[in-house]
């Protein structure tokens, strides 16, 4: 790992100002992606700005309609938080499937979302649960947040402070994990908002997206058999050593089908 200047600001203003003044800065959340990336020298920032000292980015606020989670909240906190478990259980169960226990103790919600890894789990929940991304001075709709492979709507220097998820009537996350890494080969979050179905997909394309053609079919009738009328070519599916694009396209259908069966059984 190359040498860098390390900073630990205690406010958003201080973090932004450090970012502006540095030559090639990067923000550090839990570091579960960034630190291995730096060790491999795939990233060599001049300045690492550790956000973990900014208390404003912590805390969980649960209401009947929404769950607002500070960006620094780690995966195990989301998995084990009793209020999230009772109000938005799908998010707790999703968080429990991320990586392994050690990663869940360090990795953060904000870091995962800001990274827009095509195989990360949270992005499926951001698009399916009508999330709003809060940054220092604006809000971004979850629908437009993920833009491409490792690319988001965030401007340079912008920091995710919290993410607000809408609470659905019921929802299910189905994931086919890579057996070694536990990343999603494909993951789907199917949410029912009082009869309106939203399908968030991760792992399949360059970044998370809503399967709008599937949503249209499922909004006519919540019957997985209806999906058979759809082709498999809605997006450009990822093809890599883990799975071909064709395999992922097929898997997407299988997982949505499983999710619907589980969703209908929930009540």
């Amino acid at each position: 790992m190359q040498l860098f200047n390390y900073h630990k600001p205690t406010s958003l203003d201080e973090a932004s100002s450090l970012y502006r003044m540095a030559e090639d800065p990067i923000y550090l959340g839990g570091g579960m992606t960034l630190i291995p990336t730096m060790k491999q020298r795939l990233a060599s920032p001049t300045d690492v700005i550790d956000l973990s000292g900014i208390d404003q980015m912590r805390g969980v606020v649960v209401s009947r309609k929404s769950v607002s989670i500070g960006a620094l909240t780690c995966h195990n906190e989301i998995a084990n938080n009793a209020e999230i478990q009772s109000t938005l259980p799908v998010l707790s169960s999703l968080a429990k499937l991320i990586g392994d226990n050690q990663v869940r103790n360090r990795g953060t919600l904000g870091g995962s979302i800001a990274n827009s890894d095509p195989a990360a789990d949270y992005p499926a929940s951001v698009v399916a649960l009508g999330a709003t991304i809060y940054t220092q001075d604006r809000t971004i709709s979850g629908d437009v947040f993920f833009q491409a492979l490792f690319e988001t709507a965030l401007e340079p220097g912008e920091i995710i402070t919290r993410v607000e998820f809408q609470v659905p009537t019921r929802a299910v996350y189905q994931k086919f994990p890579n057996p070694a890494s536990r990343y999603a080969v494909v993951g789907v979050l199917v949410a029912d908002f009082a009869g309106e179905i939203r399908v968030g997909v991760t792992g399949a394309g360059p970044c998370a997206f809503r399967a709008r053609d599937m949503e249209a079919v499922l909004n006519r009738a919540l019957d997985p058999d209806g999906l058979q009328e759809l082709g498999l070519s809605e997006v450009e599916f990822n093809s890599d050593l883990h799975a071909s694009g064709e395999y992922r396209a097929h898997l997407l259908h299988v997982l949505v089908r499983r999710a619907i069966v589980e969703l209908v059984a929930l009540d």
């Binding site: 550090l28 570091g31 550790d50 050690q102 360090r106």
Partner: peptide, 10 residues
Amino acid sequence: VKSCSVLAAQ
């Protein structure tokens, strides 16, 4: 935690 993926500074 995995100490190979944590900076001492953190």
